[in-house]
Amino acid sequence: MTPAAAPAALAPRQDLRTANLLIGLAVALTLFIVVVPLAYIFWRALSEGFAVFAQNIMAPDTLHAIWLTTVVAVITLPINLVIGISAAWLIARFTFPGRKLLLTIIELPFSISPIIAGVCYLLLYGRQGLLGPALAAGDIKILFALPGIVLVTLFVTSPFVAREVLPLMQAQGSEQEQAALTLGASGWQVFRRVTLPNIRWALLYGAVLATARAVGEFGAVSVVSGAIRGQTNTLPLQIELLFNDLNIVGAFAAASTLTLIALVVLVLKTVIEGRTR
């Protein structure tokens, strides 16, 4: 996280002090903004001993929140992969009217606040919403249930895969795929044996980012889940709930699981980044 020494090496000698000062400042900021709070989570979570920590994690509601978050992540990942690859493939390989528009739409969830996404779903699927009566008539429950959580999570995580895969597909062009076609490969064989291996690291990278976001998403999910304890509470919502209950150790214990996931993601991300570059 510390800035590289290159600018200092290039700078004239008298600027060395300024450079050192800036580096020191960056290190201090990183420590106080990132490292200390993260460390503090574990410290607080374990402050009353490991037994209490374990007990808090094993609390039925927290356990259910972990389970629900996992389910959401597991459902959204394959859908994200399919959407991401298809969109990147369409945009990279074809020119068609509306291509630019599609490109913008893919990026849209990144520029919209997640809470707005949640509210949109509420207005669309809610009891008073546009599709509400129809859904109620069919006895289909979307809001305050798993489908709603999955839908908004998909909304906020959908850009990740396409964003990673698209530049690679564009850079590589379609000649390899055409070569495979002339060699007699079917469409599926071309994808399996030529396209996919070429994008595999970017795909994995996008998948990791999307999953991390799916696991950690708070704003959009909090609107549509209804935060029913032990039923529609995902891990981030559960943490907030415990925190509001003044169950500090419980909140920090739950938070530490989320943080662990984040750290694993960070390591994965770094490893994959090394492979793709």
Binding site: E175, Q176, Q178, A179, A180, T182, R193, V194, P197, N198
Partner: peptide, 13 residues
């Protein structure tokens, strides 16, 4: 047919 591309288009993996 056998097609040889200008930039070879070999499968890098």
């Amino acid at each position: 047919i056998g097609f040889v591309f200008q930039h070879y288009a070999l499968f890098p993996h």
